[in-house]
Design a binder for these strands. Structure first.
Lengths: 144, 144
DNA sequence: ACCTTCCTATGACACATGTAGTAGGATCGG
DNA sequence: CCGATCCTACTACATGTGTCATAGGAAGGT
């Protein structure tokens, strides 16, 4: 459980990171071209964001092709997503239930999703979940 | 399905709203006192936030007690939460699965939670979920 | 070598956000 | 009625964020 130091990223910075996570590495030009054309910002706007991401150590320069720098992510998608979720969760009192209830209510959550998660969760518990089980009380084997 | 116009609220504004949602209505002083003392801002800071919430039509003055105004929420907790979740979901490609996967991974999601949700979801489908079923394909009754 | 093109580095700016101080009017206990 | 309090309305200001323009250097084709 190595806790990565995840920085705070803004909405736009996040979008750029997503491009980088997908492409593995890219130049400013490539990043800009990946952004949805509807709201594609000016080249230098993207450049500024990348620069700020650099300052935050969220990306780094890996090499230079021609006269253009190639950037790659330093923080992982996973760590960043976890951070986002944790923050949202705090607004909900820290519990996932209200959050899930909303998802269900909004029709974003299907029974299929739940079944899928169940499988996933069971597997996980088998591998690493022992500690948690003790901490939260053993699960009542409902619907035996 | 009346779509309420939910405004964008900042982190701090959200905290104030939570107090108001809990208290139903309150004065600036009361709001300030409800905020966790660790990071309790100055009275006028709270006042400023409330004023901005007023400008955004997220709260309104309902009456005056002494020389103090009493405020109450205009936007509902529910609508606001849904908005937050929707926004977060967009960062995840719009699907709830990755989000849930993260919750599970972070140990925020238990089998119990899932079972609970299942019940909730089934009830909901029975009442209002017919349309969705058609839209997303009928559910394969897994685990018969 | 020269010109066109692309990239970088830097500066700027408006609006958002967190945070709070000040002035002056309204209230309340005596 | 008076002073101590409390509240409101305003102002202020440092940062954060989205958005871009400019200047000038580097590459590449011819």
């Amino acid at each position: 459980m190595v806790r990565e130091k995840t920085v705070k990223l803004t909405k736009f910075e996040l979008e750029v990171m997503h491009v980088l996570w997908d492409l593995r590495s890219a130049s400013v030009r490539e990043i800009q071209e990946q952004l949805p054309e509807k709201k594609r910002p000016a080249y230098t706007t993207v450049q500024t964001i990348v620069r700020r991401l650099e300052e935050k150590s969220a990306v780094r320069r890996v090499k230079k092709i021609g006269n253009a720098f190639i950037f790659e992510p330093v923080v992982t998608r996973n760590a960043t997503h976890n951070r986002l979720i944790t923050e949202l969760l705090e607004l909900f009192g820290g519990s996932a239930r209200p959050l899930m209830a909303h998802l269900a209510e909004a029709g974003k959550l299907t029974l299929e999703d739940l079944r899928e998660m169940e499988t996933l969760l069971v597997d996980q518990e088998g591998l690493t979940g022992e500690g948690r089980e003790a901490k939260r009380g053993s699960l009542p084997r409902t619907r035996s």
